[in-house]
C-alpha cells in the first residue's frame, strides 16, 4: 500500500502519455495526431512538475523576505528544505511556450495540407499522391 501511495503519480502520467502515443500511432486523421502530440507533451510537463515536490512544509520557490531589508533576506538564512525545487518549474515554463509554438506550426502545416489535398485523412492523402505520381 505504501508503494502505491508513493508511486501512483507516475502511473497517472504514464496513462496520459500512452493515450497521446496511441493517438499519434493509430489515428488516421492528422489533426487527431496533433492532439495526441499535445497530450504527450502535457504528460511530460506534469511529470517534471511532480519531481519538484518536496513534502514536509516546502512552499513555492519565492523567498519570503525580511520587510526591514526591502523584501530581501540575510545571506545564509535560506535553506533548500524550505522551498520547492525551482529547476523543473523553469524548464517547464520554457517547454510550455515551445509547446504553443510547435502547435502553431503544426496547425499551419495542417491548413496547407488541407488546401492542397482537400482532406486530412492520412491514407486518402497517400492515395491522392499515388494517383498524381501515376499521371
Amino acid at each position: 500500500m505504501d508503494f502505491i501511495i508513493a508511486k501512483y503519480n507516475y502511473w497517472i502520467y504514464i496513462i496520459l502519455m500512452m493515450i497521446g502515443l496511441y493517438g499519434m500511432i493509430a489515428k488516421n486523421n492528422l489533426a487527431k495526431k496533433v492532439v495526441g502530440m499535445t497530450l504527450f507533451q502535457t504528460a511530460i510537463i506534469l511529470f517534471f512538475i511532480s519531481t519538484s515536490v518536496k513534502s514536509g512544509g516546502a512552499t513555492v520557490p519565492i523567498v519570503m523576505g525580511d520587510p526591514h531589508l526591502h523584501g530581501h533576506v540575510i545571506p545564509g538564512t535560506v535553506h533548500a528544505i524550505q522551498y520547492l525545487n525551482p529547476l523543473p518549474h523553469v524548464l517547464m515554463l520554457t517547454a510550455i511556450v515551445v509547446m504553443v509554438a510547435t502547435f502553431g506550426i503544426a496547425v499551419a502545416l495542417l491548413m496547407r495540407i488541407y488546401k492542397r489535398y482537400g482532406t486530412l485523412e492520412g491514407d486518402e492523402i497517400v492515395e491522392i499522391r499515388k494517383q498524381e505520381a501515376a499521371l
Binding site: V97, V100, A101, G104, V107, A108, M111, R112, K115
Partner: peptide
C-alpha cells in the same frame, strides 16, 4: 517577442492564409 509571435500566429491561422 511572445506577445507579437502569438498574435502573428493567430492572425495567420484565423485568416486561413
Amino acid at each position: 517577442t511572445v506577445a507579437a509571435c502569438l498574435v502573428s500566429i493567430f492572425i495567420d491561422l484565423a485568416s486561413k492564409g
